[in-house]
Simulated scan of single mutants.
Amino acid sequence: MSLFNIFNVSGSGMTAQSVRLNTTASNIANADSVSSSVDKTYRARHPVFEAEMAKAASQQQASTAVSVRGIVESDKPLQKEYAPDHPLADTDGYIYKPNVNVMEEMADMISASRSYQMNAQVADAAKSMLQQTLRMGK
């Protein structure tokens, strides 16, 4: 594996973790939102990652980049709360809250942040190795 490929892999990892951080932040920001119907209620979103294994297998590479395949909504049940005095209550007196678990989202945010940091450190280490290699050629 060349040192230049390391930048490709770590860069794709940083991009993927950035998407993960953004979706987690969106989930946390909408955790306390309220709606009057199931259809309008915010649902937790999570990115789906895909390793580019087909490219790696065809080129016999030891490293693979990662890409964001898409963002999916969680299928966990929404929180239904009886609050007949709430201005957004439906005809039966219920309001609907998102299926966001803030504790899980915080753990996911820490994990994504650490993964981003590790990819940045890998890119920095590769940069240092390339600089030292260039110095040896002088």
Rank of each mutant, 00 (worst) to 15 (best):
N27G: 09
M53V: 07
F7K: 04
D90Y: 02
N22G: 09
Y82S: 00
D39K: 13
R45Y: 00
A120K: 07
K40R: 11
H86T: 01
Y42W: 07
G11N: 11
A16I: 03
S36R: 08
Q79F: 06
K97H: 10
T133R: 14
Q131E: 15
K138T: 14
Q59M: 08
A62E: 10
N101G: 06
A54S: 15
Y116L: 15
M1C: 04
E73Y: 00
E50W: 02
Q79H: 11
R114D: 14
L130R: 12
A16L: 04
S18L: 15
S111R: 10
S128L: 09
E104D: 14
D85R: 00
M53G: 08
D75E: 09
R43S: 02
H86F: 04
N101F: 03
D108M: 07
T23F: 04
G93N: 05
V38F: 13
D75I: 01
V72T: 03
M129K: 11
S128F: 07
A16R: 11
A83V: 01
S12D: 05
S10P: 05
V48Q: 08
Y82C: 00
E81Q: 12
A62T: 05
I28S: 08
T91Q: 13
K138Y: 10
V66W: 05
G70L: 00
Y116P: 13
R114P: 10
N5W: 02
Q61P: 01
A31I: 04
F7T: 01
T23S: 10
N8E: 01
L3I: 12
V100N: 07
K138H: 13
K55P: 01
Q131M: 14
Y42L: 03
D39F: 09
Q60Y: 02
Y96A: 12
S111C: 03
T24H: 06
F4Y: 09
L21H: 13
A120D: 13
A123T: 08
M106C: 07
H86G: 00
M129L: 14
P47M: 04
Q59K: 09
R69Y: 02
I95S: 05
A107S: 12
L3S: 06
K76A: 11
I6T: 13
L130F: 14
A62K: 10
D108Y: 01
D32N: 15
P87W: 01
Y116S: 14
R43D: 00
D90Q: 03
E81Y: 08
N27E: 10
N5F: 07
M14L: 15
V122P: 09
N30P: 00
V72G: 00
D90E: 04
K55L: 11
V48R: 05
K76G: 05
G137A: 15
A120Q: 15
R43I: 01
V100Q: 06
K80C: 05
G137K: 15
